[in-house]
């Protein structure tokens, strides 16, 4: 039902719903190749991750050049949020939420950096650069080892420390 009745005032929308089911079919068929540049979502199991790889050592100079101006040296925070681990998140009076103490899933890092960062030139990093920055930030947050290589295979297997820290508020609506 699109809208429900309030206090007996009919909104007469059900007619519109029936009408709306009848589509004029004006969508143009597209192929994966047509939409490749936009098809950038990474799913938590790693689906969508591209070829390429990177390590923290490769990520450090890219970070210094393209990220530190806002996020501070080594992720300590600046005009934009810290990317370092803080103490445990205990409540709204506890530590700031960051990658290491809060983010539930590792693939979010690749997905978000690739689509949104650096803030002023989003979607300009190569996939290797995004893997390298992801590795660099995961090392900073002590989630992976210093020399671990991040790629489509390894990144989805990284278990984030706060993976089980979440409660779905309205499971019935999913």
């Amino acid at each position: 039902m699109f809208t429900r009745k309030c206090l007996g005032i009919g909104l007469v929308m059900s007619a519109s719903v029936a009408y709306a089911a009848d589509s004029p079919n004006l969508g143009t068929p597209v192929t994966p190749a047509d939409i490749a540049a936009w098809d950038i979502s990474i799913l938590p199991d790693g689906r969508g991750l591209p070829a390429g790889s990177g390590t923290a050592a490769q990520g450090a100079p890219i970070y210094a050049q393209k990220c530190a101006a806002c996020h501070g040296e080594n992720g300590k925070g600046g005009t934009a949020s810290a990317l370092l681990p803080r103490g445990p998140v205990t409540s709204i009076n506890g530590a700031e939420r960051t990658i290491g103490n809060f983010w539930p899933v590792s693939t979010t890092l690749f997905d978000y950096i690739r689509r949104a960062m650096p803030w002023q030139q989003p979607k300009t990093l190569t996939n290797d650069e995004v893997y390298a920055l992801t590795a660099y930030l995961l090392v900073l947050n002590k989630v992976i080892g210093e020399s671990d290589v991040m790629n489509a295979e390894t990144l989805p297997k990284v278990r984030m420390p706060n993976r089980d820290g979440f409660i779905v508020r309205f499971p019935g609506k999913m």
Partner: peptide, 22 residues
């Protein structure tokens, strides 16, 4: 997708240290 806004910004901390998501 576990996108950034639903993994951090639009989660709600509870007094027990857990957070509401979705």
């Amino acid at each position: 997708g576990m996108t950034f806004p639903e993994s951090k910004t639009y989660t709600q901390l509870l007094p027990n240290g857990k957070a509401y998501q979705f």
